[in-house]
Design a protein around this nucleic acid. Sequence first.
DNA 1: CAGTATCCCACTGGATACTG
DNA 2: CAGTATCCAGTGGGATACTG
Lengths: 121, 121
Amino acid sequence: MQNFHPTGFCPIRDIISRLSSKWGMLILITLNANNTMRFNDIQKSIGDISQRMLTVTLRALEADGLVSRTIYAEVPPRVEYKLTERGNSLIPLLKNLVDWAIANTDAILQERTDKKYEETV
Amino acid sequence: MQNFHPTGFCPIRDIISRLSSKWGMLILITLNANNTMRFNDIQKSIGDISQRMLTVTLRALEADGLVSRTIYAEVPPRVEYKLTERGNSLIPLLKNLVDWAIANTDAILQERTDKKYEETV
DNA sequence: CAGTATCCCACTGGATACTG
DNA sequence: CAGTATCCAGTGGGATACTG
């Protein structure tokens, strides 16, 4: 029986958990779709992310080397975000997930209502 | 500028959020690695999942048609879980993510300590 | 064995106000 | 413009006890 390291470091649990934060994947996909973006651009594009969560999530993605942050010494300040090479290498995998989600959405929604499960995990 | 439906239903946000629950992906991968498993097998394999969360997560995966649940009328009861066809169709994508995580773990950990970011998203 | 049922805490994440 | 700084609510998820 194969198992997945409850103790010690586990790449699945650690790395993937970053992507699966509420906003992580969404920000990566948005950056990929629009190339370089400023802080407010990202916020407008996503629409319902708070200023705080955009900051926090961008910092985490930056810490993992998925997103780069460039500050221009201007007034008013301009800060540009874009995917790093590592961030870009993740995009095809995320797109596969998105495609899978789109392809399976109808069937899944149907099944949920059939079974009348309310609980969300 | 492309954006991702803040209002209404968004497959990325909804479907993917199920997988990105703390245990969702891990259970799917575990089931794939071991084929049919009983409740206690899964719990032992993952090691540090509580009984409650295993139940809750399995019910959610079942509601989305990713996992099937078969009850055998025996004493003591026997319940077997396995991936559905839809669940199986997701496995290659998850494996890609796992492979990516494994391949990038060292570099990412290095970068995190370099930048001394503590905050986890 | 395979769950429910409670209780409860920590943390995620939103709202608001303030600043270089 | 691009953030911090607080404060606070909701809920994800753990521990424990009980059951068909």
